[in-house]
């Protein structure tokens, strides 16, 4: 008995991995800045699909709403407001930092992969509490991690106020 649902699920899993890799490559290799943000959005969608396979539909939806819906829009907004079309379409000159980037990222990535395969054996812990449901996340957020939850709301408030003040400064000179 072949489980067709499982086959489709595995094919979708490979597709999400390919989406992530292609998006990341497009994001760092794009000639135009807007294409870079587009590649980032594709990569984030792939990661959202992987979150689904990791058991959390809530995080998958949050990834799409926060990253693809908010962060990418902010980046596109920054490109469209802050740069003239010539500059946002300017070619990144290849060759100046590419070798340094390849060496640095190659060393870092190789070290990580060696660590993953060679040094460590990940043990599954025996005692498990809770489940992957949203109720359990909410309960933990409001009881066990209450301080961090409040702190991140303060951080978001400070970030909003700071962004408004920073972007507002200098406007009077221009007018």
């Amino acid at each position: 008995m072949i489980d067709y649902y499982q086959i489709v699920a595995q094919i979708m899993f490979v597709a999400f991995i390919l989406l992530t890799i292609i998006g990341a490559l497009l994001s760092v290799n794009a000639k135009i800045l807007m294409h870079s943000v587009l590649g980032l959005a594709v990569c984030l969608l792939g990661v959202a699909g992987l979150y689904f396979y990791l058991g959390s539909m809530f995080l998958s939806l949050m990834q799409i709403m926060i990253y693809v819906g908010a962060v990418c829009i902010v980046l596109v907004f920054g490109i469209m407001v802050g740069f003239t079309p010539n500059e946002s379409a300017q070619k990144n000159d290849i060759g100046r930092n590419t070798l340094l980037g390849i060496v640095a990222s190659g060393i870092a990535g190789l070290g990580l992969v060696i660590t993953i395969f060679g040094k460590t054996s990940w043990e599954t812990s025996a005692a498990t509490v809770g489940d992957f449901s949203i109720e359990w996340i909410g309960e933990n957020l409001l009881l066990k991690y209450c301080l961090a939850f409040e702190l991140i709301s303060v951080i978001l408030l400070i970030a909003i106020v700071g962004a408004i003040i920073l972007a507002k400064g200098g406007r009077e000179e221009g007018l």
């Binding site: 490559l25 760092v28 990569c43 930092n97 640095a104 990222s105």
Partner: peptide, 13 residues
């Protein structure tokens, strides 16, 4: 690890 490495590459490049 791939995402980290390619992010580092992009940040340098």
């Amino acid at each position: 690890a791939f995402l980290f490495a390619i992010g580092l590459y992009g940040m340098i490049r």
